[in-house]
Design a protein around this nucleic acid. Structure first.
Lengths: 190, 190
DNA sequence: CTCTTTCTGTAGTGACCACTATTGATCGAG
DNA sequence: CTCGATCAATAGTGGTCACTACAGAAAGAG
């Protein structure tokens, strides 16, 4: 079943426009990002935006999903490291870099936007899974409270994002990450 | 020099109205709190609000200062404990309770509101001062990186606030606090 | 009492919000 | 070419925003 495509084709790149929307929502959040600024930044008139993305809320959801997918790729790469400690260390260092990258807005959309609770829960779930694997692999003590440790790590990540939004540098964020790793269980028994 | 007070007196309690404004800003933040909801909650008409508090921005600043003053009282009480470890432990426990108290909005105004960067810097300064005192008192190792530790603690506090806003319970926040304390330097040497 | 001052409520200001009706342009199909 | 379909841009929709002009009410000073 192939849908027949007659009529005038779209004159802008939908993916490129969505990327611009991601950047806007990332920089100023959902509420502070108006449709007028979105259309201006995307180079698209309001009717075209609504035809292509539905409404502001659905555009945000699509933008947030895009952002989350990209974040998870980095997360999976870190999680693939041999031990939980290496995985978490890598994740924190990636975070320090990403949250202060000059080419993108400071901080993290997922960790800052109030309405993205579900994404943060998913992040927590993935973290805990990696920690549980560390327990199974024996590189974390068997009595490790993986859920509390995952909650702690999410809190630290959120704190790093907030620090970046407040103007913190990559070194500030690395100092937080390094200090946080002192709370990570040592490899040899707990 | 005494100012002569003629004219009709104010018909509402300014401090009580301010307390209501604190609660509103705390619950929904600066941008999401409209003057209309403020006047409704405070039981004051718009012109009275503007006569008593200036404008929305100044009302917010006054509300934030009130909130901050109250927070600092608890902070000072914790800081007065004998050792830095006790002080920080108490502060984290107070935070877990305050951020999930049923009588107030979840989380923390100072740690959530983007425009309150100065208050967070002041919090960081106070934390570092208490840690420095711990080093001087000898209950923290002399090589303790107090600035990084203070940044870490602010990050954890912010993470706890965010967790509370996402629906976390007091036990969730206590688990974060307890895990974070594992990163605190042990009392006897570094 | 009058006069002055300050508060109060009603009612509305222009600006911006998310969103859309309408019209005309531009494509593929035949 | 004509025709039908889908796009795009102009120009607005009602609603809400922070904020205020205005007029009447309530107090102290004399």
């Amino acid at each position: 079943m192939i849908t027949v495509m007659a009529g005038r084709p779209r004159s802008f790149d939908r993916d490129a426009a969505l990327a611009v929307a991601v950047e806007q929502f990332w920089r100023t959040g959902y509420d502070e990002t108006s449709v007028a600024t979105l259309t201006a930044a995307m180079g698209v008139s309001p009717p075209s935006l609504y035809a292509a993305f539905g409404d502001k809320h659905r555009l945000f959801e699509e933008a947030a999903a895009t952002y989350f997918r990209r974040t998870c790729e980095g997360l999976d790469a870190a999680a693939a490291l041999p031990t939980a400690r290496e995985a978490v260390t890598r994740m924190l260092d990636d975070t320090a870099r990403a949250h202060t990258d000059a080419g993108t807005p400071p901080g993290c959309l997922m960790l800052t936007e109030p309405r993205l609770t579900a994404q943060r829960e998913e992040l927590h779930r993935r973290l805990q899974e990696r920690l549980d694997r560390g327990v199974r692999d024996g590189d974390l003590p068997p009595d490790t409270r993986t859920e509390a440790l995952a909650s702690f790590l999410v809190a630290v990540l959120r704190g790093m994002s907030g620090c970046a939004r407040d103007g913190g540098t990559i070194d500030d964020l690395r100092a937080i990450a390094q200090t946080a790793m002192a709370a990570f269980p040592p490899p040899s028994g707990g």
